[in-house]
Amino acid sequence: SNGDSSPPDSDLEHLSENICKSHLETCQYLREELQPSNWQTVLQTDLDTYQKKSQEDMWQLCAVKVTEAVQYVVEFAKRIDGFMELCQNDQIVLLKAGSLEVVFVRMCRAYNSQNNTVFFDSKYAGPEVFKALGCDDLISSVFEFAKSLSSLQLTEDENGLFSAYVLMSADRSWLQEKTRVEKLQQKIKLAMQNLLQKNQRDEGILTKLVCKVSIIRMLCHRHMEKLSAIRALYPEMVQTRFPPLYKELFGS
């Protein structure tokens, strides 16, 4: 192409529509399904059940839920124009590094700021539900992040574009065609900028969103730390009881 001329608006419009459609098709729970009024919050009886679980059982339950969510993110990526045109190595690298990041972005859709609960296991659950994991610090950081991102009140389209932006991070290690990913991420960022302007969002929201990326990465890093700590405690557990996709993504 002739240097870095920014893509025509029609290209950006088309990419924006493609990503928003992909998001709605693969968002796992539709917005209306997630209405807190549709779901009960975890009752004391349930709470006792969760808190009485062994650390291994609770880790296994959460690993299964994370893996379910990640599969929807893989389908989201496949539907984004340009992703399947990347070389297979880069598709794998972006998903391995970014799928859990996108799950954290999507989680704010399933967060109820009224009572600091998140949709989990068909109920709205607070941080205390996850006590048996033995990761209270990480769990409270995750809820804090969900609270802060949901306070931006992103529309579905904005959430979809931000998810795509996070996924197509060109600074991932081991990318073979870094420039191609950079161009794709830049296009997505411009499309996101256009959408935020169209939605008359306040000036600083794009900067706020880009700043959230470092927090998302810190959460993913701490997830890996907790995983290696639990694996040191129960070496067999991850191998025998966690979903294969979870092991493939986070095992090494």
Partner: peptide, 20 residues
């Protein structure tokens, strides 16, 4: 390919939104 068999398979198979 060996290390990421499942991801490769998910990327290859064309699943419709219904499957999701």
């Amino acid at each position: 390919k060996e290390k990421h068999k499942i991801l490769h398979r998910l990327l290859q198979n064309s699943s419709s939104p219904v499957d999701l």
